[in-house]
Structures are given as C-alpha cells and as structure tokens.
C-alpha cells in the first residue's frame, strides 16, 4: 500500500477489528467446541473447521471461538456450547459441519436457539 488517506486509516482499523476483539475482550458470544478424545473421534475437528470457515465467510468478528474437553455426555458428541453474553448457555449435540453452520447462523448470528439440535440450556451446578 502506498500513500494513504484518513479514510484508509479507518479501513485498516476495520480490517483488523477481529484480531483486537480477540485480544481486548468485549465479545458478544463464545462458542466452545468440546474436543476431548471422544469429541475428536466423533468428528469435532470437522465441526471446528466448519465454524472457522463460516465465521470468516460471514465476517463474524465479535465471537470467541474456543475448545474445551469432554462435556461428559460422550455418546452425544460432537458437542458445542454457545454462550451469548447475558443469556444462559446452550449445549448442542450430535453435530456435524452442516449443523454447526446452521447453529452459527441461526443462534449465534440470528439469536434464535436451534431447538432440533439443542441438548440442554444452562450449565451444571458446581461447587
């Protein structure tokens, strides 16, 4: 890029927004793909890849994507938990790439829980 204008400054800022959302916090939602041994064996990797690609395609920049271990309900893997700030977390089960894309679009972006794939709302009590 050669000489830039004030508008270019704003464009560069926009382009890097996702990176700094990651580093600064202030995210709207978090999607956790459960990647324990069971999850990976059941195809969590494909679910994760689908999520990464779909988020890039839809330019979703304010959602954290992370992994965690087994959610304890191994038979229902691959699983993912969607947490939207201020709302109860929702666990989805028996996912694949297509289902994950649908969850991203309808729940994370659209704000509506995808009931047909949802396992449970809320999280276990822990002490």
């Amino acid at each position: 890029m050669g000489r830039i204008t004030v508008d270019d400054l704003k464009k560069i800022k926009e382009k890097h927004q996702a990176t700094f959302k990651l580093r600064e916090g202030g995210n709207r939602a978090k999607v956790t793909v459960h990647m324990g041994t069971c999850g990976i064996a059941a195809g969590a990797r494909a679910v994760m890849d689908a999520l990464i690609d779909e988020m890039a395609a839809k330019e979703v920049k304010d959602v954290i994507l992370t992994t965690s271990g087994c959610a304890g309900f191994c038979v229902k893997e691959p699983m993912a938990t969607v947490e939207i700030v201020g709302e109860a977390p929702v666990k989805y089960c028996s996912l694949n790439a297509d289902k994950m894309r649908k969850v991203l679009n309808e729940h994370v972006i659209g704000g509506n829980v995808v009931e047909e794939y949802a396992l449970v709302v809320g999280s276990e009590t822990s002490y």
Partner: peptide, 13 residues
C-alpha cells in the same frame, strides 16, 4: 497496521 487498528494515527489525522 496493528497500530492503526488501535486508533493509531487518528489523533494525528
């Protein structure tokens, strides 16, 4: 670019 992404050079502008 990363500096600009954090409001860099907007003060100068």
């Amino acid at each position: 670019d990363e500096y600009i992404a954090r409001d860099g050079y907007l003060g100068a502008a």
